[in-house]
Amino acid sequence: MIRFQKKNLFYKIYIWLPILVLFLSVFNEFDFNYLNIDYFSFNFPFILIFYFALKAYQRFDYFLVFLAGLVNDTVVGLPLGLSSLSYILICIFATYLRNITISPNLMKDWFYFLFIISLINSINYSVLFLFFSYELDITLFIVNNFFTFLFYIIFSIFFKRYLKSLDD
């Protein structure tokens, strides 16, 4: 298990790791497009934001999440503010789930996550199609939604380990 002395620089970086990874992912796009797998894509920021807004909101600055959204819009070429809105909506839904949940359950969280990303992707698709006249392939959205949903379980294992290491 990784152990740091508190007030150490590495410890501070380790605490800020989710936000750092979020920024790295929006700057860098973890898309694995060079693998040339048809239709394969998933939205890593959605997974990360939802998990940490749900489980470790004390260490997760929403304003930085908002900024990460702006960066993502700039890198991907979407209208400025759209990803920020999506990320903040995820935070709101995660906060709501946290408030109404007494005993957390991974399966419930997982399917709630599916509902949220489906809703947010629908909003994104509608805004882009109706207000910005973007030609979009809905299949790509659905596939992206599906893979994001699948990968949530895998990443939540890593995130859980990370949070556990922090608590220790």
Partner: peptide, 10 residues
Amino acid sequence: VDHESPFLRS
């Protein structure tokens, strides 16, 4: 920058 979005190619 050549990060392909799944929806936009630029």
